[in-house]
Amino acid sequence: MIHTLHSSVITIAIRALGATLAIATTAAQAAAPTPASASTYQEECGSCHTAYPARFLKPADWTTVLGTLDRHYGADATLDATAAGEVARHLGVGSPPANVPAATALPRITRSGWFVHEHDEISAATFKSSAVRSAANCSACHTGADRGDFDEHSIRMPQGTRHE
């Protein structure tokens, strides 16, 4: 009973804090990333996939991604309001819209013109190989991907795959 009371009061407190932060984030739209926002981004997004650099998508596309975290490419990646604000800050965008229509197509880095062009010599078989699995697995070849380093000199193709 006491626990339930705690939970509901905490929920109210968190919502109040979240609303305050959401307002603050909107006001400080496209605020510069901070060490704290970088750390939150790495933890919340970089646990499951490469912490993609902000430059990989257009700001409007990041906004769509952040507004659809409940259906994040087949996974539930919902964040609390504090983390969502930090991630938005890190990606250089404002708060995501509350309701993105369900039919909205999710942006794909791998379908961006620059990505397709940069990888046009990599075969589909290489992307599907057991060492790579997915084009989302940047660090399979880009050894500095987790540090945001995608320099050509840092590329090491896994054994059994080819850079044709």
């Binding site: 499951c48 490469t50 490419y73 087949g74 790579v132 697995n137």
Partner: peptide
């Protein structure tokens, strides 16, 4: 290892 993205866990 993340089954979709291959990210080490």
């Amino acid at each position: 290892k993340h089954v979709v993205t291959g990210k080490p866990i």
